[in-house]
């Protein structure tokens, strides 16, 4: 059964390779965690498609919202889930029914379903649950350190500076 434990290399590998993300449960309200995470991921260069049937056809953070994964007209590398844990089995069904499947299933903090995660993994997806991509990006890049958070990263290497003030990135995989 899927365990709630991931190496930093595994997470960094996902955040390096993923370019496009479908965010299920994205909220148009700018103080909701999904909206905050979406804004951050866009600032870090990800293309994000919000998925929210109640808001379909309208924009969130300047991006068109879709009613379902199947409606998104371009390839999705990762599905990020802002729904309750009990919604995960149905979402895995939906992902596995897609012709053009994503490579990664990511479920947010507190969202975890061992059986659904295992099913996605057996179908060849990389799976991360009970984590936040904003927190993980901030942790692995070092940005989260400015908030006094324990990144658990020990390194004498140079942080990767991005364009602009106070912007760090994830180091490319070492050769």
């Amino acid at each position: 059964m899927h365990q709630d434990s991931y190496s930093d290399n595994f997470i960094a590998g996902i955040l390096r390779s993923v370019k496009t993300i479908a965010m299920i449960g994205a909220s148009p309200k700018d103080v909701r965690p999904s909206n905050i995470v979406m804004k951050y991921l866009i600032a870090k260069g990800f293309k994000v498609a919000p998925v929210n049937p109640g808001h379909a056809g309208k924009e969130i953070q300047g991006q068109m919202t879709y009613a379902s994964l199947a409606d998104i007209p371009w390839h999705i590398d990762m599905v990020d889930v802002f729904r309750g844990s009990d919604a995960l089995p149905g979402i895995v069904d939906e992902i596995l029914a897609l012709k053009d499947r994503p490579d990664v299933l990511w479920a947010q903090l507190t969202v975890f379903h061992a059986e659904a995660g295992q099913r996605a993994e057996d179908a060849g997806l990389k799976v991360v649950m009970n984590r936040c991509p904003k927190i993980e990006y901030g942790r692995l890049s070092g940005e989260i350190r400015w908030s006094g958070v324990n990144s658990r990263i020990i390194s004498s290497r140079k942080p990767v500076a991005q364009r602009g003030f106070q912007a760090l990135g994830i180091r490319p995989q070492s050769k």
Binding site: D30, V31, I36, K39, Y40, A43, G138, E143, I144, W146, S147, G164, F165, Q166
Partner: peptide, 12 residues
């Protein structure tokens, strides 16, 4: 960027 920092939406 300033608004994001003040609104706790960016690290910095």
């Amino acid at each position: 960027h300033a608004a994001a920092l003040f609104g706790l939406k960016a690290f910095g």
